[in-house]
Simulated scan of single mutants.
Amino acid sequence: MIRAALLFAALCAATSHAQAEASLERGQTLFQTKCAICHNSEAAAGHAVGPNLHGVVGRKIGSAEGFGYSAALAGSPETWTPERLDAFLESPAANRPGTAMPFSGLKKAEDRQALILFLQSLSTKE
């Protein structure tokens, strides 16, 4: 009985790891197809049309040095948490009225979570 429980736990852990890897890959694909047209993700890449998103998770909103934010984001006292990113990525204009970001959002929660997982990975890669 104990052996079966250990095997089940190992299977769950392996499945969880595989799912996390798949989500991370999905997030990277989403970034490349939906975000990279306006945003860079490498630490030394600088800004593009939008701010560089390397290290965005945990960064104060509207604070990437050298980027000119719209009033909707500039001066915000909040930090980009996974929860705030989730709400923003669902509908940027509804979440931050007046934002200059011309993106309609990601409607599927699993897509937003995968993208956030990828964004979280950016600050730990280098």
Rank of each mutant, 00 (worst) to 15 (best):
A4G: 09
A4C: 15
A5F: 13
L6V: 07
L6N: 06
L7D: 08
L7C: 10
F8I: 05
A10C: 13
L11C: 14
C12E: 12
A14R: 04
H17R: 10
H17K: 12
H17F: 08
A18Q: 10
Q19G: 06
E21C: 06
E21H: 12
E21L: 09
A22R: 12
A22L: 06
S23V: 01
S23L: 07
S23R: 13
R26E: 07
G27D: 04
Q28V: 00
T29H: 11
F31W: 06
F31G: 10
Q32E: 09
Q32I: 06
Q32F: 09
A36K: 10
A36M: 11
C38I: 04
H39G: 01
N40G: 05
N40H: 08
A44K: 15
G46P: 01
H47Y: 10
H47I: 02
V49A: 12
P51S: 02
N52E: 00
H54S: 13
G55I: 00
R59P: 06
I61M: 04
G62C: 09
G62R: 04
S63T: 03
A64P: 00
A64F: 01
A64E: 02
A64L: 00
E65F: 08
E65G: 09
G68M: 07
Y69E: 04
Y69I: 02
S70T: 05
A71G: 08
A71W: 05
G75K: 04
G75T: 02
G75W: 03
S76Y: 04
W80V: 00
P82K: 00
P82A: 01
E83P: 12
R84V: 11
R84Y: 10
R84Q: 14
L85Y: 02
D86P: 11
D86R: 08
D86H: 06
A87W: 14
A87E: 13
A87L: 15
F88N: 01
L89N: 04
L89E: 02
L89S: 02
A93T: 10
A94M: 10
N95C: 14
N95P: 13
N95G: 13
R96T: 13
P97G: 09
G98W: 07
M101P: 11
M101E: 12
F103T: 08
F103I: 09
S104C: 13
L106P: 06
L106G: 11
L106V: 13
K107Q: 15
K108M: 14
E110T: 07
D111V: 05
R112A: 04
Q113S: 08
A114H: 04
A114W: 02
A114N: 05
A114L: 04
L115E: 01
L115C: 11
L115D: 07
I116Q: 00
L117Q: 08
L117R: 15
Q120I: 01
S121R: 05
S121L: 08
S121F: 04
L122K: 09
S123A: 14
S123E: 03
T124W: 05
E126D: 15
